Simulated assay, not measured.
Amino acid sequence: MTLISICLLFLAGLLSGMVNAIAGGGTFLTFGAMTLAGLPPITANATSSIVQFPGYITSALAYGHEIRSMWKAAVILGIVSAIGALGGSLILLSLSNPSFRNLVPWLLLAATALFAAGPKLKPKTEKEHPPHNAKGIVSQFLTSIYGGFFGAGMGIMMLASLSIATGGDYHRLNALKNFLSIVIAAIAIIVFTAGGAINWLYAIVMLPGAALGGYSGVWAAKRVPQHILRWLVVAVGLFLAVYYFLK
Rank of each mutant, 00 (worst) to 15 (best):
T2Y: 11
L3K: 07
I4Q: 12
F10A: 03
A12D: 05
L14W: 05
G17P: 07
M18Y: 02
A23P: 00
F28A: 12
T30K: 00
G32E: 03
P41C: 11
N45V: 06
A46I: 07
T47Y: 02
S49M: 14
S49N: 14
I50H: 11
A60S: 14
L61F: 10
Y63S: 14
G64V: 05
G64T: 00
A74V: 01
V75I: 12
I76S: 09
A82C: 10
A85Q: 14
L86C: 14
G87A: 15
G88Q: 08
L92V: 12
L93I: 13
L103S: 08
L107V: 00
A110S: 13
A113E: 01
L114E: 04
G118A: 15
L121K: 01
P123N: 03
K127D: 09
H129G: 08
A134T: 03
V138N: 00
I145S: 12
I145T: 11
G151F: 03
M154G: 08
I156N: 10
A160H: 02
S161D: 06
L162R: 08
L162I: 04
I164V: 01
A165R: 11
T166Q: 09
G168K: 06
R172W: 04
N174I: 05
K177F: 01
F179A: 15
L180Q: 12
S181M: 05
I184P: 10
I190R: 10
A194I: 00
G196R: 05
I198F: 09
M206K: 03
L207Q: 04
G209L: 06
A211M: 13
G213I: 04
S216G: 07
V224I: 15
V224D: 12
Q226F: 06
H227A: 15
R230S: 01
V233I: 03
G237A: 12
F239T: 00
L240S: 11
V242F: 08
Y244F: 15
F245R: 09
